[in-house]
Design a protein around this nucleic acid. Structure first.
Length: 904
RNA sequence: GGGCGUUUAGCUCAGUUGGCUAGAGCACCAGCUCGACAAGCUGGGGGUCACAGGUUCAAGCCCUGUAACGCCCA
């Protein structure tokens, strides 16, 4: 692509013909990898690693487009920009996918295969399918440094995970203990508090009668899970509850068991809810666990890992919990201890992953002490080291950190980082970065090591190290990347993982990078929370609902640039985006526009090019250069602030309105002039100036567009003649244009607006009077200000050309209105078009009448306002003066319109 | 129960520290095969800014309350 290429001859933008080859050219150019010399400041983005089992969905497409826009912009503005890609091993999800596949295809269960063979199968699966989503990111145009692609189970990541674990071990931040955890009976593993959700479901609440031992009295207790009564260790009532006061301290003979359990008084019981008495099942309910602790109750586990009743359950042992529920209710009925059942709706805790009902149960797990680690992460937001955009998400982040619970990090799975802990024969643990040989001696006890911990770590316990582990930490051999590219500047992610991932990464940065100065430890300075993509009806897109729009399909249909651009302009900060698939037409139309205008411009840039003298550049040349300079400032600011919608919108406005509809159309006036028989040097120079301006504006515009529509702009850049690009390199690697301050001319832009308004007014009257395009009358333009008379006289040919006129006759507004004309008023005066013979004036009349009533309405409002002493007194003098001016204008307009109406 | 967000044209959305007649795209209507583009060009119609109060000379914007929808936490 270093040689200039021939412009395309088709009039339709057909992205499928060039996107893949352009991506290949980028790949081969090495530009995805920042230069090794390290001379420029760095700008780093870490991709939120998608699950290795994942396929690209709209959320990914949106999020990764954002990141690519940021990275491409920074790459062009002089940074060594690095975007590190990778995938997450996603413990539970991946294990489940492969487990299912093996079962369906080979009728194999993992328990039959053994750990090593099963893990091998997952690795094989990853070799074949693990890059799907990364390839899809390439179709989207993601300019990641693929040479640095990481996987959260890579050996380097393993080293990082083990190092972090041992650091926590040494600081006593990690501990092993028996605690009530959220147990997923389907997956047979513990999950953390952050991996569960609550759903409202219909259920039943059962009331059971518990007889007191050695008494005729009883207590009724209500429960939604009758089967847990087998694990009851007591019954609690409120200390002030007179109904039960005499029973406190006595025992209950727990039915179906031979156990006696105490009645205790506890403040946590709500006396007027239900029967006012609650059963205490410390082994299977978080609140009861607390109550049990307060009353020194033992914890009894009645469940097996798969959700069946365990050997503590006597006749019920081995039954699935649902079946046990039925049988226990039946048994209570038989004993005449069943009081009743009612339908209720209540919140049920389910597992994020398997969607099965979570059973709280006590088991031996590894936990991370979070409270002290959370403090630096809290400080980071408060001292401004970390900014959220939109800012309100910092509250979600802070809420979680300020109320953080210890994190259960062990999982009873096989796919993941195995916990780097070994035990001697007395179960004394030893944490180690290096593998410990079985049979070697425990350094503290001197006893032989007999086994490694069977469990693996929660996936987030590797991904929280992502920002620095991807850069080589803690390996000193490879960690020059860490010094150069850490901390990163921008993290973009979804709101659902603010605490699962974002908060933990910040904690990890402060906790583990102790060799770095405090100020450099926060892993990113901006956390951008992107919009959620909803379907056309405003529902979340989901696989199960089948309402997802496949970005890859959209790319095939509309092109990656169209998909990218559409997503960017639809994404207002903090605002969810409703997406129907036809919304990509917006981007498609825009890309088509760029494609065609570039083709048009380039047909005029052929051959040798000599730059014209400054004097050859005319009014509209200066105008479009001024608009371009303003656009540059707007885009640059918007991108630095991550206001993607604003940037995309400014590009749209400039490209379609300013450039295509006005400048390019006006340029034809001068370009066609050289076809005339007698061509003066002046005409030639003017045409040359137009060509030069077209080329220069297009060149800069392609650059400004490039972060949003990289494929198309790169293709067009290759076709652009040498004179309009500084070197033969790729657009992707080119320098962002410098906003030309000298070219910015607000006054001139204001003048152009007046010309444009006049042209529009003329076109409007032409349409109302049905004057055909081929008919080129002479129009009168009457201006309110003398300076505008001058302006319109100077730019008469511009106005005539744009409005299809033979010529214009410019006068002061004080001049008498010409007779037999149709009029319209505009921002600087009025225009008059000669009435064609047999003209139907009805449309013009109704237009004028409507306008008149609007003007009169405006006048009444202004009169009222200006006669209000308080307004004149209080409002800024500029505002008051503006209103007076406006009033004056409206009065003139009123007069003009009335006069014309009378003449009709 | 607590927190956050949204409500502006038929649809999807902009609208800055309060200040000219509230904007865009799509859709709609009328006209146009004019030498980049019919995925186009030109012109046009269309809004009680959710509702009720309040502050102010002035409110889509600020304050209070209400309603509907959505998300998160417990």
């Amino acid at each position: 692509m270093t040689e200039q290429q021939e412009p395309s001859t088709t009039t339709r933008y057909t992205p499928s013909e060039f996107e893949d080859s352009i991506y290949q050219i980028w790949q081969d150019s090495g530009l995805f990898t920042p230069p090794a010399d390290g001379l420029r400041p760095t700008f780093t983005v870490m991709i939120p690693p998608p699950n290795v089992t994942g396929v690209l969905h709209m959320g990914h497409a949106l999020n990764n487009t954002l990141q690519d826009v940021v990275i491409r912009h920074r790459r062009m503005t002089g940074y060594d920009a690095l975007w590190v890609p990778g995938t997450d091993h996603a413990g539970i999800a991946t294990q489940a996918v492969v487990e299912k596949k093996l079962y369906l295809e080979q009728d194999l269960k993992r328990s039959d295969m053994g750990r090593d063979a099963f893990v091998d199968e997952i690795w094989k699966w990853r070799e074949h399918h693990g890059d799907v989503i990364l390839n899809q990111l390439q179709k989207l145009g993601a300019s990641c440094d693929w040479s640095r692609t990481k996987f959260t189970l890579d050996p380097g990541m393993s080293l990082a995970v083990r190092t972090a674990f041992v650091k926590m071990w040494e600081k006593k931040l990690v501990y092993r203990g028996s605690r009530l955890v959220n147990w997923d009976c389907n997956l047979e593993t513990a999950v953390s508090d952050d991996e569960i959700e609550y759903v409202t479901r219909k259920g039943q609440i059962y009331t059971l009668r518990y007889p007191l031992a050695d008494s005729d009295e009883y207590i009724d207790v209500a429960t939604t899970r009758p089967e847990t009564m087998l694990g009851d260790m007591g019954v609690a009532v409120h200390p002030d509850d007179k109904r039960y006061a005499h029973m406190v301290g006595k025992n209950i003979a727990l039915p179906l068991t031979h156990r006696l359990i105490p009645i205790v008084a506890d403040d946590s019981v709500v006396a007027d809810y239900g029967t006012g008495a609650v059963k205490i099942t410390p082994g299977h309910d978080p609140a009861d666990y607390e109550r049990g602790q307060r009353h020194n109750m033992q914890v009894m586990n009645i469940l097996n890992g798969d959700g069946t009743m365990n050997e503590e359950c006597g006749q019920f042992a081995g039954l699935p919990r649902e079946k046990a529920r039925e049988e226990i209710v039946a048994a209570f009925e038989k004993l005449e201890l069943f009081v009743g059942v009612e339908d209720i709706t209540h919140n049920v805790t389910i597992s994020d992953r398997s969607k099965s009902v979570i059973e709280p149960l006590v088991s031996e797990q590894w936990f991370v002490r979070m409270s002290e680690m959370s403090q630096p992460a809290i400080n980071a937001v408060n001292d401004g080291s970390l900014n959220f955009k939109p800012a309100r998400w910092k509250n979600v982040y802070l809420d979680w950190l300020e109320n953080v619970h210890d994190w259960c990090i062990s999982r009873q799975l096989w796919w993941g980082h195995r916990i780097p802990v070994w035990y001697d024969e007395d179960n004394t643990p030893l944490a180690s970065i290096e593998d410990v040989e079985i049979g070697s001696l425990h350094p503290e006890t001197g006893k032989p090591i007999v086994r490694q911990d069977e469990d693996v770590l929660d996936t987030w316990a590797s991904s929280w190290l992502w920002p620095f582990a991807t850069l080589g930490w803690p390996d000193s051999e490879t960690s020059q990347d860490l010094t150069r590219f850490y901390p990163t500047q921008f993290l973009s992610t979804g709101r659902d993982i603010i605490y699962l991932w974002v908060a933990r990464m910040v904690m990890a940065g402060y906790a583990f990078l102790d060799e770095m100065p405090e100020a450099d430890r926060c892993p990113f300075s901006t956390c951008y929370i992107h919009a959620t993509v909803l379907d056309g009806q405003g529902r979340r897109m989901s696989k199960s609902a089948g309402n997802g729009i496949d970005p890859v399909e959209m790319i095939n249909e509309y092109g990656a640039d169209a998909v990218r651009y559409s997503l960017m302009i639809l994404t207002r900060e903090g605002q969810d985006v409703k997406l129907a698939d036809n919304r990509f037409e917006l981007g498609q139309r825009f890309c088509n526009k760029i494609f065609n205008v570039a083709r048009y411009v380039m047909t005029h840039l052929k051959g040798d090019f000599t730059a014209p003298a400054d004097s050859a550049f005319c009014f509209e040349d200066k105008w479009i250069k001024s608009r371009l300079a303003h656009l540059n400032v707007t885009i640059s600011q918007a991108l630095e602030n991550y206001d993607f919608h604003d940037a995309a919108q400014a590009l749209y406005r400039f490209t379609t309105d300013d450039f295509c509809d006005w400048y390019v159309e006006l340029s034809k006036r001068r370009l066609w002039a050289i076809d005339d028989a007698e061509v003066t040097d002046e005409v030639l120079a003017s045409a040359q100036a137009a060509k030069n301006t077209l080329g220069e504006v297009l060149s800069d515009l392609l650059k400004l567009l490039h972060p949003f529509t990289p494929f198309l702009t790169e293709k067009l850049w290759a076709e652009l003649p040498q004179d309009f690009r500084e070197d033969r390199g790729l657009l992707m690697g080119s320098e962002w244009p410098v906003a030309d301050e000298a070219a910015q001319n607000v006054e001139l832009e204001h003048q152009f607006d007046k010309l444009r308004d006049a042209v529009r007014a003329i076109r409007n009257v032409r349409a109302l009077l049905e004057i055909p395009a081929g008919n080129m009358p002479e129009a009168n333009v009457h201006c309110e200000e003398e300076s505008d008379v001058e302006l319109f006289n100077e730019q008469a040919s511009l106005v005539s050309f744009a409005a299809h006129l033979e010529s214009i006759d410019v006068k002061s507004i004080d001049a008498a209105s010409p007779v037999a004309t149709g009029t319209d008023v505009f921002s600087a005066g009025a225009i008059f078009l000669p009435m064609p013979i047999d003209a139907d004036t009805s449309k013009l009349r109704s237009n004028l009448e409507k306008k008149l009533s609007k003007i009169k309405g405006g006048l009444i409002g202004l009169e009222k306002k200006l006669s209000n002493a308080k307004f004149v007194e209080n409002a800024d003098s500029e505002i008051v003066e503006g209103e007076r001016q406006r009033m004056h204008e409206l009065q003139i307009e009123c007069k003009t319109v009335e006069a014309n109406l009378q003449n009709l």
